[in-house]
Design a binder for these strands. Structure first.
Lengths: 184, 184
DNA sequence: CCGGGGAGAGACAATATGCCGCAGTAGCTG
DNA sequence: CAGCTACTGCGGCATATTGTCTCTCCCCGG
């Protein structure tokens, strides 16, 4: 189709399921995605080819991908790096940006949000009229639903444990789960 | 004692009470503090003398102090800037750091925390930060707050537009914004 | 057989939300 | 300047959602 005009994206993510979903979505939008699960794999991929963008999961197994940032930047200072994490915090966000990441996003995030975060040059003052016109953020309800499902999954379906982590009452979580997912 | 060896701190904070408390605490620790309540005052102070550190409240009346960051940096690139806010969010943290702030702290913060955030050279290479604790997901409330801040930021602070995108009633959004962000 | 933890669910008070309406402000335009 | 349009802040409700407490059932390892 259009082999050499496709932007190259390096995806470093240890959640295979999520990685597959993102890869597919990005591929459909005319990006070429290379996926690695660890820092080592990421570096290997980086040696093999050059990338335009990188999406890093902050938590790779037991390790953090923060240390990867300087290495990536060193090889290619034009590389735009997006940090994506299910355990977002202001602290790690600040650190990531200081280390050279270009943006930082908390999961759950849909493809539009990811792409927007990755592509937007700098909404600070550069673009008075950003072209993100067509894309719209998830509703609060939907985001909540996604997040709950994710945490619930991490806890192997244990509602009590999930409620504790989410700092909400178990009864409340129970009721939320009985309702069906919000459409949009 | 040692008049001219005292580090100069520029404090930009519109909450008079808080400003007084911080000023006193810092003065007791051998810093010389100059206080301004608005961006204009801050710039005036900056013209009058040179500073080593700056502490900016993110929310100055109706304005944001983010735009002040580049101006401060321009005059003195060695100036260490700390952003302090009672309405902390990942979005504004990322923006502040991109604009050149050196650190970002959420209120409430005691003097020790403030000083530490201001003085610590760079915890970047002090790496072991990330994995010390058992990473736990954000609470639902926190995630909601972060998401709201993010979308609000994308809409340049337009509450009505944000409410529409988030599919929640404007009155509801308005009320949520008046409350302080949840601790964790 | 007992104790601990999880799950489902009823009841009720405390909050939060949706949805009015009104007033004030700002920008635009004929 | 009047006449629009859009945003903001905020006061009332009526209704919906939560937080809490309480009681069963289950399942599992001692």
């Amino acid at each position: 189709m259009m082999p050499d005009s496709m932007p190259q994206i390096l995806l470093v993510e240890d959640d295979e399921v999520f990685a597959r979903v993102v890869s597919r979505a990005l591929t459909l939008r005319e990006f070429e995605v290379s996926h690695g699960s660890t820092s080592e794999q990421a570096l290997d991929l980086l040696k093999a080819k050059s990338f335009d963008y990188a999406i890093l999961d902050l938590n790779l197994g037991g390790e953090t991908s923060l240390s990867l940032i300087p290495e990536l930047k060193q090889r290619n200072s034009a590389l735009r790096i997006l940090i994506l994490t299910g355990y977002a915090s202001i602290t790690t966000a600040v650190e990531a940006i200081k280390l050279g990441a270009d943006n930082y996003l908390a999961k759950p995030a849909d493809t539009d949000e990811i792409l927007n975060a990755l592509l937007t040059v700098d909404e600070s003052e550069t673009a008075p009229v950003a072209e993100h016109a067509v894309m719209e953020p998830m509703s609060v309800k939907r985001l909540e639903w996604e997040h709950i499902q994710k945490v619930l999954n991490e806890n192997d379906g244990n509602i009590s444990a999930t409620a504790r982590q989410l700092k909400m009452h178990r009864r409340t979580l129970q009721r939320k789960l009985q309702k069906r997912p919000v459409a949009k």
